[in-house]
Every structure is written in C-alpha cells, then in structure tokens.
Amino acid sequence: MKQNRREMLSAVGSGLGAIGVSMLSVAGKADEKKDIAGSSASVIKSKVTGLPENWRAMRKFDVHNHVMQDVHLPDADWSKVESLVEAAQILGIEKLFCSRPITGGVMAEIADVRSVNDSVIAAMKRYPDQIFGFCFVQPGNGPAALEEIDRCLDAGMLGVKLYNQYRYTDPMVFPVAERCIERRIPFLGHSAHLTDARTLAAQPKTSDSLDFCELSLRFPELMLILGHVNGGGDWEWAIKGLRDCPNVFLDTSGSVLENDTIEMCVRELGHERILFATDMTMEGCVGKILSAELTDDQREDIFWRNLQKILDRRTA
C-alpha cells in the first residue's frame, strides 16, 4: 500500500532513531530544521561552515540514478526506492531521473527488459513529482527494443538509457539513436575508459568518450549524454576525448570524487555541457559540485538548468 510522504518519513525516522539520528530534520530548505510533519521548528544554523548556507535549497536535477527493486510486482519491497527518495529530499534533489539497466554483460530477452522498465514505471507512479524514467533497452532486441522505447515514452518516460551490451559505435545501436532523435529524447550511455585489465575483461564493450564522439558525429541531432564521468575509468581521458564533439553532454556522477574533475570539465568543455548526477553516490556528488570552483550561475546551470534545456527540446 502506498504511503504518503508523512508516513514514509516517520517510518524512516523511527528506523534511525536507535542511534539518535533523524535524517528528516535536515530535509528542510536551507539550514532551517523542520520536524517530521514539516512544520517549522527552531532555526538552527549549521555547524558546517565550509558549504554555502543555502546548499540544500539549491535546485538540483539528478539525471543519472536508478530504481533497484522489482517494485512493480505484488507485495514488493519498496525500501530501496524509499531510501532513494528520502535521500533526495534531504539533499534538496528535486527530480531523480531513473533507469534500471540489466548489467553484468547479460544479453537480456525483451521480456526481461520490459520487466525492469515496469519497475521504473511503478516508481514513477508512486512518486510522480520525484521520479522520472529513462527507458533501458538492449539494442540486440532489434525492432522490439524500439517498440519498448515507444511503450516507455507512452508511460511517461523522458529518455533512453543504454548499458554496455554493445559499444556505441556498433551499427546495432544506430536504430536506437535514430528513434531518440525522432522522439526528441536524450540518450544516456554507460561509459568508462577502463585501464585495468580485470575490469576491462569483465566489460569489454564499455564505450569511452571517443565512442560517444563517433556516435555524435554520425548523429549530430542526438542529445547524447556520457554517463558518470567519475564512475570508474580514466576521467581525464573521458573529458579530453569529448573536446572535439560539442554535441555530447557529460554527467558528473560516480563514486570517484576526485578534486578538479568538475573544473577540468568546465575548462575543456564549457559548463553548459555538464549535467549534475549522482548514480547513487548522492552525498558525494552533491558535495563535489558544491566545492568545485564555479560561479553561482555555472553551479545552477550544472545542477539543473542544462538538463531542463535538453528536456525542453522535446516539446519545442
């Protein structure tokens, strides 16, 4: 049964209460603490002085996140989705753009692809103001993959997510790119320039920035997003490889939080090609943008406005 926000947050708060941690009271705007019911409590100034005072209230759209459970099934466990929404509220992330790719190099059947997308659709229905869908497809499914894109868009999804079943220079991917152009939706791709043999052997078809460039040159109208610049792999390579391909955007997500990543993106690509994202490293990726050397306008563009411009093209 669907919980309302108050019920859900209350449940979360009691779960953390054993150690005296109620995450809810930091979920209010700016540094104003609020109680579970959302009414204003006393204003307590944060002890952490190294962040902008209003950092929680800064508008943020996370273009790369995931629904990780079969929440479309009866009696589903929603706990991970609830934790995701809770974390977004605490961090002031207004919109989560989520997919559920089939990973591990699995060449999935179309029925399995539909199933994972159904879980995202279920999450979109339960959290219509917070969770927005990106449709996972496996290009090897051929025409069925294109039909799945249409089905996902009809259900309200806003983009397509590909994983590493095919390198993006593979002609198998081209019909997906063409469908994205036709429907004016962004194509978010898993990426990495992997330099260690072990990971490379496990993910031999992972695309790096040069693959994205090649796809972009072939399809200049495609709204192409290189996923998680800090998701593992040589991020300096990734950024430099995009310099000659102005139509490729890049998202800032990933578990690597290395200093100068964002500044190098801005130096080499310009800030308007950079999209905030977390890929589930939520605190880290918010903190990365907050402590990067950016102007206020650049930070705002990266946090949400650049993505909004991409989404606006859909209805232009």
């Binding site: 200093n259 605190e283 903190g287 402590s291 990067a292």
Partner: peptide, 8 residues
C-alpha cells in the same frame, strides 16, 4: 578528493 562530499 573534494572536501565538499565529507562536509555534506
């Protein structure tokens, strides 16, 4: 690494 993530 950036310091911001740990401050958050």
């Amino acid at each position: 690494d950036y310091v911001g993530p740990s401050l958050v």
